[in-house]
Design a protein around this nucleic acid. Sequence first.
DNA 1: GATGAATGAGTGTTCATTCAT
DNA 2: TATGAATGAACACTCATTCAT
Lengths: 190, 190, 190, 190
Amino acid sequence: MKKKQNIIETATKLFASQGFDGTTTLQIAREAGVTEPLIYYHFEGKDDLFTHIIEHGFKVYLERLDSLKLETAYQFEKIEKLVEVHFNFVREMPDEIYLFFSTCPAKLKDKSHVCSKKLQQQRRWLDAYLTSCIEKGVKTGEFYPIPIKETVSLLFALISGIVRQRGLHLNTLKGMRITTIEFCRRSLVK
Amino acid sequence: MKKKQNIIETATKLFASQGFDGTTTLQIAREAGVTEPLIYYHFEGKDDLFTHIIEHGFKVYLERLDSLKLETAYQFEKIEKLVEVHFNFVREMPDEIYLFFSTCPAKLKDKSHVCSKKLQQQRRWLDAYLTSCIEKGVKTGEFYPIPIKETVSLLFALISGIVRQRGLHLNTLKGMRITTIEFCRRSLVK
Amino acid sequence: MKKKQNIIETATKLFASQGFDGTTTLQIAREAGVTEPLIYYHFEGKDDLFTHIIEHGFKVYLERLDSLKLETAYQFEKIEKLVEVHFNFVREMPDEIYLFFSTCPAKLKDKSHVCSKKLQQQRRWLDAYLTSCIEKGVKTGEFYPIPIKETVSLLFALISGIVRQRGLHLNTLKGMRITTIEFCRRSLVK
Amino acid sequence: MKKKQNIIETATKLFASQGFDGTTTLQIAREAGVTEPLIYYHFEGKDDLFTHIIEHGFKVYLERLDSLKLETAYQFEKIEKLVEVHFNFVREMPDEIYLFFSTCPAKLKDKSHVCSKKLQQQRRWLDAYLTSCIEKGVKTGEFYPIPIKETVSLLFALISGIVRQRGLHLNTLKGMRITTIEFCRRSLVK
DNA sequence: GATGAATGAGTGTTCATTCAT
DNA sequence: TATGAATGAACACTCATTCAT
C-alpha cells in the first residue's frame, strides 16, 4: 500500500512540473520505484490517476475553503482569510494547487472531464465567495464603490497568478503574504 | 509562402489551446492544410517551430514594451501604460501572450532552451521596469512606502493572472482594464 | 470445489464464444466469481485449463461414440446413430462440441499439443467408423457404389458444418435431425 | 505500393491460420518484410486491416455468386453451380473464404462490425438462392417433397463444412467436387 | 482454498522525423 | 516547394503468471 502512495506522490510532482502530456507512465513508475503495470493495478489508467490526484487535492482544498464561511465583522477580513488560505495551501501542497490553477488547458476542452468539472466548481465557489464579500463591503461603505464583477475577476486573477508563481518556484519572497493583503486592503477599504 | 504562415498560425493556436506536448505535428499539418514534411522544410522540427513562434511573438511584445521607456511625470503612469500594453496585446495576439505566460513548464526545465531564455528575459525586463518605477515612486512620495520586491512580484502575478484568464477566455468583462488600473492606483498612489 | 466447477464452466462458455486467444484469465475469473490466482491453484495455466476442458468433453464424447460400436443389420443405421449422437451432444454440451469442431486453428499448429492430438484422435475415430460403414454398405449392395474416402470426408464435413451452425446458434430448426438423416439416406441407400 | 500488398497478403494468411486474436501486428510486419508503423500508415489499425481483407474478398466472392443468377432448365443445375463456385473459390482464395466461414466468433458478437454485416449478407444471399431453388424444385416435381428451410440450412452447413476442411488443408481429395454434387443430386432429384 | 499485490514480456498504436522523388 | 512512403523510438496499456500471506 505504500507503493500506491508512492505512485500518487510521484505522479503529482511530475504532472505539476512537466504537465500531463509531458509525463509518461514509465517515468512515474521508475521514479516511484515500481513497475508500470502496478499503476494499472491501482488505477484504471493515466487519466484515472490524474483524476484521482485532482479529486483528492480538491477535497482538501474545498474543506479549507468551507472553513472560511464564518461570520466576520468586516468583509475585508474574509478576503484576507481567503488569501491566507491560498498561501497556506500552496506552501503545504504546492503541486496540487498548481495543478488546479495551471493544468494544461487541453484537459479543460472536454467539459465533461472530471477535472474540468472540479475546476469549474472551484471557480464558482471563489466567485460566489468574493461576490458576496464585495457586494456587502460596497453596500456597507466598508469598501470603495467599485464594480463588483470586475473586482471579483481581478482578485481571482491575482490569487491564481500568485499561486502559479509559487508553484513554479519563481517567487519565494517571505513578505508576499502581508504585501498582498495590504495591497488589496488599500485598494478596497476606504 | 502562405502555407508557411498557415503552419505558424495553426501551430500557435494549437500550442496555446492544447499545450506543446498535447499537439502533434500531424494535427498542425492537417489543420494548416499542408503535409507534415512541409513543416520540416520550413522548420528544423517541432521544437524549432515552437521557438520561432515564441521568438516572433516576443519580438513584437518587446517592441511594445520598449515603447514604454519614455519619461513621464508620474511613475504610476508607467504602470498604467504597462497594464494597457498587456490588455492590448492579449486582445490582438491572445495565443502568443498566453504562451509566454502559461507554457507548460516542462519546457522551462531546460534552462538553455531558447524559450526558457526568452521567458527569463521577459521576466527580467518587467522586473527592471517595475522595480525602477516603484523605487522612484516610493522615493518621491508618489507611492505609499511599500516593499519594492514584493510589490513587483505581486504586479507581475496580477498581470500574468489576467493574461491567463483572457487567454483561456474565462474573463471577457469590458471593464477589466479600467478596474485593474484603478485597483492598482488606489493601492500604490497616496 | 464448486468454484473449480465454476471456472471450468465459465471458461468453456467463453472459449467457445470468443476463442482461446480472445478470452483472458481475468475475464474467466470475474465471470466465474473468483480471483485469478485461484485458476492457477486449480490448473497449471490457461493452456492447461483449455486442455482440461477439451479432454473432459472429449472423454464424454468418446464414450458416446463407443456406444455406437454395436452390430446392426444395416450400415445406414450406424450412420443414422452417428448423426443422432452429434445432435444429442450439441444439444447437451454445445460449447464443448463446438470447441472440438471449430477451435481457432492456431492451437492445431502445434501437432504435439494435447488438444491437437485429441482432435486428431476424433478425426481418426470418425474416419475409421465411417470408412468401415460405407465400405461394408457398398460391398453388400446396401449403398450405391460410391467413392469411399470422398464420402467419408463429405459426411464429416456435413456433421461438422451442422455442429458449427448450432454452436453459433445460427440454426435452431426442429426438423434438422430428421431432415439430415433422410438427406443422407436418399444419397446412400439404394 | 508493393509493400501494402505484402501486408494484405501476409495478414490474410496469418489471420486464416492463427485467427485474428492470435496474430500480432508485429508478426504481420515481420513476415511482410516491413515495419509495424507502415501497417498504420496504410490502415487505421489491426481491425481496419482485417475489415479490408474481408470486404475485398467478399466483393470478389459476391461477384461470383451474382454470376449464378442465370436461368436454368433444372433447379439442381443451380445447386451444382453453387457448389462449384465454392470449390473454385476455395482453390483460388483459400484463406479469404476460410475467413468468411470460420472467423473466430468473437467478431460476430458485435453485430454492427463490418465483418458481422458482411457475413450476414453472405448468409442471406445463400439463403435466398437456395430457398428459391428448392421451392421451385419441389413444386415442379424435380425434387423430392422435402422441407425447404431445413434443406437450405443443411446445404449451407455442408458447403461451409467443406470449405472449412479445405481451408484447414484437411481434405485434399480430388474427387470431392463430383462426389459432393452426386451426393446432393441423389438426395434431391427424383 | 483463496487472495491482494506485483511483474516481465508483450500488444496495438502514435510520434517526430527522414528520404526519395 | 511539396509530398507519399517509410521508420526508430517510444507510448499507454494488457496479459498470463507468481508470490507472500
